[in-house]
Design a protein around this nucleic acid. Structure first.
Lengths: 188, 188
DNA sequence: GAATTCATGTAACTTGTTACATGATTTA
DNA sequence: TAAATCATGTAACAAGTTACATGAATTC
């Protein structure tokens, strides 16, 4: 559901092809939404079928035809009411594959688990550096239409969210490693 | 994929019916894995088809027949190799519906967003209290087979993970509210 | 000459969601 | 007498994943 609104939200700013959308998702939105090209094309078709988008074929020489999507009145209404629904409680119902594995880790090797958590910490630290770079890059943009400058604040919030999540992952992993190592010492 | 291993992991300790599994999921695992009954039954059928589980019908008087599932050798092998695969990097590729909405929030009403974030903080605080209760309940269990006492450490880690996530959500939401309120002040 | 870019997807599958169906027994 | 518990699911759909296909133009 979120992906469909994401597509609407981007097309709302500027009509685009599926290919353009794929690049936007693999650029600006990648840190919080992993989208497959095949799913983008499928969802665009659904959104058009349901009257939220319309398309226009643009012929090109030497290149494949473009299918430019633009938002309809119904699409924009639906987008705005989605944005304005600020009940985030469903976010707290999730599936955490990491916890699923940890829950059963008494069946496994605790040395391997410690190594995995160590690596997890390194990967989270590397991600934080990427977030900081993205954040700095956003700050360095000055010449931009005011519409985009207004959006920037929110884009930075999504980066901050990712950063907080990484910090939390690191703190949790450190605590867990400590518990596991203490247990090992006690057994010696 | 995680759900299937979760089912294997629970059945590994004690043969069970789909109904029993549903209760385990809605009890001990609910805080990190939301499972639908319909999916549990479907995945059990798949696991049996693939040779990881076998079942035995147990007749009852006055109640529906029970279908008890138990794990096979292949199932246990697969479970253990899953537990021992401690590469958690895929955890960092996720989809965050909250960020998706925030990303487009310049199209919406910032007062509504602040209210939504305030409520989000309250819900996270309430969850933390539940986690603390769960954690304390685990500590209060003393008379238990050593196998379960060994597992407890890991169960507590999943609770701690949920707690860390809530704390991180709260800190992020606070920061975001502050930014939004400052912006409003500047405009006045 | 090989790899990447541009631009479109389709097909098959897995995973997760929502709503419904059955029917006796036990508890409030 | 109404609701919850026990125990099984099915059907239809939405969302996400993986692998593949086309074919010209451009860049390395």
């Amino acid at each position: 559901m979120s992906l469909k609104f994401g597509l609407l939200g981007i097309i709302d700013d500027r009509p685009m092809t599926g290919y353009d959308l794929m690049k936007v998702f693999n650029g600006s939105l990648k840190h919080f939404w992993n989208a497959q090209t095949s799913q983008i094309y499928r969802d665009l078709a659904t959104l058009e079928r349901d009257g939220f988008l319309e398309s226009e074929i643009e012929a090109q020489n030497g290149k494949p035809d473009k299918k430019n999507y633009f938002i309809t009145e119904a699409g924009r209404e639906s987008l705005i009411s989605w944005v304005n629904d600020c009940d985030f409680s469903s976010v707290l119902t999730y599936r955490d594959p990491l916890c699923m594995k940890i829950f059963f880790s008494s069946k496994g090797d605790s040395y391997r688990l410690i190594a995995g958590l160590d690596d997890f910490i390194l990967k989270n630290r590397a991600l934080i550096i990427k977030y900081d770079e993205k954040d700095a890059a956003l700050d360095n943009i000055t010449k931009l239409p005011s519409k985009i400058l207004e959006s920037r604040k929110y884009w930075k919030m999504t980066i901050s969210k990712g950063r907080f999540d990484c910090m939390s992952n690191i703190e949790w992993a450190k605590e867990s490693i400590k518990i596991l190592k203490e247990e090992i010492k006690e057994k010696l």
